[in-house]
Design a protein around this nucleic acid. Structure first.
Lengths: 239, 239
DNA sequence: GATTCACGCTAACATTCGTTATCGAATAGA
DNA sequence: TCTATTCGATAACGAATGTTAGCGTGAATC
């Protein structure tokens, strides 16, 4: 089975000779996580990063009143806390939103990559920077759009990200999130998530059954979302 | 006058011999910007990044309804769009919130750094990753806190960031933002910003006169903000 | 088989927040 | 000097969103 990280980087730029092998060399041990398991705990000093080989995971901050704010959602192939390589200490915990398979990559090995593979280093850097672009898109969605627009934006984003890794089926995808979890993602109450979801359904934009979402009207959905996919950097470019 | 970028990096890790000179070599041309000037325009293909030598700048996205959402605020020493080095195309524009002095750094020169200075590369990488951490803090503030908590959080953050570059005076700082601008930052209407500001004032947490803010009760302010400064990475660590 | 629990959904109500309008003061420009 | 604009502040109103409660269902647990 191919390393999904390689697939992800190859979508953004062509790997140079040797880079693929270097990546394969550092991804060794892998293990599984149960649903709800906390893979990485806030404020710990880290000497390895986590690569998500399969499943959905989230970066979450918990507030004093018990509210949980999810600040990022990750899918297969994402280097969930690559930023901890330079940060050393992360400001959130990482939790499995489904059962997951993950691999740990030693920071020592990443350091060796920065010493020997400058182009590959730039591509890893790019991964963390795309995470930042997604953060900004979420900020603009939360601050500037209606709740319906925000939810529509999230659906559009997840569809393109899942499509990029071949996890869509026509206009459908599996999004294994409950409405309370969506509330934690969007910063809304689960009641309001339900209301807004009804709206998207009655506008015939999407169908959401169990955990399978079908997009009935992509143009309409992107219009209510004001969705512009460029921030996902889904095209090749020399980096 | 010392290069403020060097000062910023030195606060996070000790520079190795030669790194300081390499940085000084790539920061050459500098120019001034008027208030409101757009330094970098959304969606342009970039081959240089912008270093803020003096002043306040913002990254902003404009929505279809005319609303402007500011997704980041930058101060002296910040490498405002260093992420464009690997991204090549940015998802927002960059606008001067005050008159600014800026320098442009060619991506070719940054590429040379990644080829020859791996440790310095990691520190530049770190800069972009700290920007991401700030994005996440804002997301948690917008999604999970009250408007008062969100505003208080922003004030705490700006105070520590300005203190780190020596731009505070005791418990006071100059924050040259109007209330409508604060609204664009927080995703609130200017009317509501005014309401919430009154609240912080009447609780004797801050004094805000003209553009000078005095923090009267740091403990109280951080408590209403639920502010934890670790995400700013303001301590040295081998990277 | 019985129990518990989480989920999706709905309703009623309270609160927060946005919109619009207005005012005086300060500022910039003609 | 006069005018136009912007800002901070305030009020009134309406819309968006949160809170609490309750219901039926299905899955998991005992």
């Amino acid at each position: 089975m191919p390393n999904p990280l390689i697939q992800k980087l190859e979508a953004r730029d062509t790997l140079l000779p040797g880079e693929r092998e270097a990546l394969e060399r550092i991804v060794v041990r892998s293990r599984t996580c149960r649903f709800g398991e906390i893979m990485v705990r806030e404020d710990e000093h880290l000497n390895e990063s986590t690569l998500l080989l399969q499943g959905f995971a989230a970066r979450a901050k918990t507030l004093r009143n018990g509210k949980r704010q999810i600040v990022a959602v990750h899918v297969t192939g994402d280097f969930v806390d690559l930023h901890s390589f330079v940060l050393k200490r992360i400001d959130h915990s990482i939790v499995a939103l489904t059962p997951c398979r993950i691999a740990n990559v030693a920071h020592r090995d990443l350091e060796a990559i920065t010493e020997n593979f400058p182009h590959l280093t730039r591509l890893l850097w790019l991964s963390t920077v795309i995470d930042g672009a997604i953060h900004r898109a979420w900020l603009a969605a939360m601050g500037g759009r209606s709740a319906a627009g925000q939810l529509a934006h999230f659906i559009c984003e997840m569809f393109l990200r899942l499509k990029a890794i071949g996890h869509t089926d026509g206009n459908s995808m599996v999004l294994p999130f409950t409405q309370p979890e969506l509330g934690d993602i969007l910063g809304l109450s689960s009641v309001h998530v339900n209301r807004v979801l009804q709206g998207l359904r009655s506008d015939n934009l999407i169908r959401w059954q169990d955990q399978s979402i079908t997009i009935l009207d992509w143009d309409g959905l992107t219009r209510t979302a004001e969705f512009d996919p460029t921030y996902l950097s889904l095209q090749k470019e020399p980096r």
